[in-house]
Simulated assay, not measured.
Amino acid sequence: MRYTTVEEELEQRTHSIENFSYGINRFIIGLSKKVLLANTLGELGKIFSNTNEKTVLFYWIAAVAFTLQVYFDFSGYSDMAIGLGRIFGFHFLENFNYPYISKSITEFWKRWHMSLGTWFRDYLYIPMGGNRVSRVKWVRNIVVVWFLTGFWHGAQWNFIVWGLYFALFLILEKHFLKRLLNSLPPAASHMYTLFFITVSFVLFNANSMSEALENLQGMFGMLYVPLCGPESLYYLKSYGLVLIMAGIGATPLTVKIKQKLETYKSGRGALNIMVPVVHVLLMLLITGYLVDGSFNPFLYFRF
Rank of each mutant, 00 (worst) to 15 (best):
T67K: 03
G293D: 05
Y165F: 14
S49G: 04
G129L: 00
I61T: 15
M274P: 00
L164T: 03
L194T: 03
M191L: 15
A65H: 04
L184P: 06
I160N: 02
A246L: 14
L194P: 06
N207Y: 07
G218M: 01
T254L: 14
I24M: 14
L223M: 09
E173I: 14
F220L: 07
G129A: 03
L124H: 05
R132I: 02
N19Y: 06
A206P: 08
V202A: 12
E7Q: 13
I273T: 09
F20Q: 07
F159R: 05
S210E: 12
Y22T: 14
Q69Y: 08
V56F: 07
I29E: 04
V139R: 01
K54S: 01
T40N: 13
Y100K: 07
W138V: 01
L203Q: 11
G30H: 10
L31C: 08
F90V: 11
F20M: 13
Y59N: 11
L271W: 04
M222F: 08
E231K: 07
R268A: 06
T55I: 04
V278P: 02
F201S: 05
K174I: 00
V278E: 05
F108V: 05
K103D: 04
A246P: 11
R135S: 14
T4Q: 15
V70I: 15
I248P: 01
Q259W: 13
S78K: 00
K258S: 13
L261M: 10
I171H: 14
V70N: 11
N131H: 05
K237R: 10
R26F: 15
S208T: 13
L281M: 13
Y123V: 07
W157Y: 09
L281S: 09
L290W: 06
N215P: 09
L181A: 06
E8S: 14
L284I: 15
L285D: 08
H113M: 02
L223I: 06
G85I: 08
V225H: 03
T14D: 08
E214G: 03
S78T: 03
P186V: 15
Y234T: 10
G269P: 07
M219S: 05
G45T: 05
I160Y: 08
Q217G: 15
S200A: 15
F108L: 12
Y3L: 11
T106A: 09
V6G: 01
F92P: 02
N95W: 10
L10R: 01
V133H: 00
T67M: 06
T51W: 04
R86Y: 07
V136P: 00
E94D: 15
P297V: 06
R111L: 02
S104N: 00
L148M: 02
L243K: 11
S49D: 09
L164V: 02
E173H: 07
Y123G: 05
L194S: 04
P276W: 04
L184T: 07
N52M: 09
M222C: 04
N131R: 10
F48N: 00
E231F: 13
Q156P: 01
S134T: 15
M114C: 11
V70W: 14
S189Q: 09
G288H: 12
F88D: 05
F166A: 12
F195H: 12
V64T: 04
M1A: 03
